[in-house]
Design a protein around this nucleic acid. Structure first.
Lengths: 153, 153
DNA sequence: GATTAATACTTTGATCTTCAAACCATTCTT
DNA sequence: AAGAATGGTTTGAAGATCAAAGTATTAATC
């Protein structure tokens, strides 16, 4: 039990410390090398579905609207997003992904998918349930302890 | 299987996106509120054991020595680290934690420990082994795919 | 032993991300 | 119609980071 405990701690620490760096590196390889990890997260938050306004995306990312404005300025310049004003309410700014933006979105999903596939490829259904429940425990713990605003809807 | 797959993906994404923010928040509560998450990681990398030189710490953190110099300047000013030159080789700069630095180190470990404890409190030994093996899969995947320099010795 | 090369850091100048606060435009309230 | 509220943008400042230039010390070479 004690041994397992230490192993688990070490694994999680490694994972947490590597993940951002890895995500970034996974972008650098190819045609999206001009995207920072921040920008990819903005693209991820905008999502593929429909136009979204600045406030809701900023809330999801847990950044201020001002910060998002700057990020969107850059993504616009690089051709990854569209920005228009709503006709119903001229105050509202609507943003959405261009084709290029969607391609980047898909590329990033691919990264996640491969990671998951690797993780679970050797697990039985039963084992997967264990894994899920353990991860749910962590998430619940965080949520309760730090009262996090949840991202991803 | 497909359902589980999606759940797992979502859990991991949540986790990865929250963890840094949470670590930071866990510092803000108390006497270490003047430490940024970056600075805590530097403290973590220096470690409790013995004096370390700049290069090795920078390598562990995967940042340049120049960046580390700046971080150490600040930590010095705030009283968390000591900095001296080696007597054997005057080029080498040795850094170590002050008492205050050690206290911060311990506080951060505490955060990790609580997290782990929560995660595994409801798991049997058998289930823990599943969790560990799944996490090892992810780590191995990263290591192979992105050829990561490993931190934490 | 003097010169050159290598090593270990620090400094500098630039870029990126972020925030808070001030600002602008539009819509809502009264 | 005036004032308040809402949704964004801009501005100024701070922190993290890097690459490249600079400094000091040690090692290698001639």
């Amino acid at each position: 039990m004690n041994k397992l405990y230490g192993t688990l701690n070490e694994l999680l620490v490694k994972l947490f410390n590597d993940i951002l760096r890895i995500e970034e590196q996974s972008l650098k390889d190819d045609e999206f090398s001009n995207l920072s990890i921040t920008e990819i997260h903005v693209i991820e938050a905008i999502g593929q579905t429909q136009e979204r306004n600045m406030s809701s995306v900023a809330r999801d990312l847990d950044i201020t609207i001002g910060t998002l404005t700057i990020a969107i300025n850059n993504l616009l310049r690089k051709g990854y997003v569209n920005r228009t004003r709503s006709n119903e309410d001229r105050r509202i700014v609507l943003i959405s992904l261009t084709e290029k933006g969607e391609a980047a979105y898909k590329h990033h999903s691919q990264f996640h998918n491969e990671m998951i596939k690797t993780t679970i490829s050797k697990l039985s259904d039963e084992e997967m349930k264990v894994l899920i429940s353990a991860l749910e425990n962590i998430n619940t713990y965080f949520k309760e302890k730090y009262n996090l605003k949840r991202k991803y809807k």
